[in-house]
Amino acid sequence: METAFDIVLALLLLGVGGWSVIARNMMTAVIVFIAYGLLLSLAWVRLHAIDVSLTEAAIGSGATGLLMVIAAHKVAGDTKRVVQLSRGFHALAAVFAALVAIGIAALAFVLPGEPVSLAAPVLARLPESGLGNPVAGVLFVFRSFDTLLEKVVLLLALTGVWALARDEDWGGVPGLRLFPERHSVLGLLARTLPPIGFVFAIYMTWAGADVPGGAFQGGTVLAAMWILVMVAGVRKAPRVSSPLLRLAIVTGPVVFLLIGFLGFLTPGAFLAYPEGFAKPLIVAMEIALTLSIAVILGLLIAGPPKGEDAP
């Protein structure tokens, strides 16, 4: 039964993924890609990776999908330059792609028969941190250096998006399309959902130390609520030069760095936690990160500043 489910899921992944590649209309392709992302998070559940499943649904499918929907909407008219390739070229590309796929599939049989795993060492040292979720342990204890750098990557992505504003629009509000009809369903949702989402996000961050969840998933939920509020026109997007906004963006990274440097003092290594204080410090860091991640994600999707009175 389970095997049958897995086989259907794998075939669906290939079918839907393939559809998003060959779809003629760009908007269709993007929407199919979002559906593909949801199927993929199901596959992650089947692979016993609930944390990844949540991240895939939130970021891989949700946030990425939203960005691409916005893009597909704006470039919908780009058709005149679509190069008509010959059938022969398509066939050649298909053969090449098939060879790549077969080659990679064949590697399944050449990996060493004995699987390798760090599960045991992770579990052996996890109690020192007081965390219950081994994935959180890897992200915030053993490989927290990666996670710290990943936050810098997010900051850089944000400046990278802002870099694409026009000079005269600098300091203005991001150019997210607004639908300011006061009594629309969107408006209603934007007034009722955020409190619920807020509570849910806090729970996800809090619980992430012990069960799947964490700052990223919580932050994404918060970001989704914020985007809903901005799109519905209930609250205006803030100016990118707003000091309060800047503070929210850097709070998470600053707390992360401070805790990293604290490790130099005690117990004596960068990003090491003082004995007995690991869990409270990690939870504090995660809360700060949730806020920053939510704001950064929201701003990444809202796009570069477009001047104050852009429609």
């Binding site: 204890v141 990666d146 290594a269 960068f270 090491a272």
Partner: peptide, 13 residues
């Protein structure tokens, strides 16, 4: 050399 966080490979960096 520096062992980040005091965790040696393969667990740490």
């Amino acid at each position: 050399a520096y062992v980040v966080g005091g965790f040696h490979p393969p667990l740490g960096i």
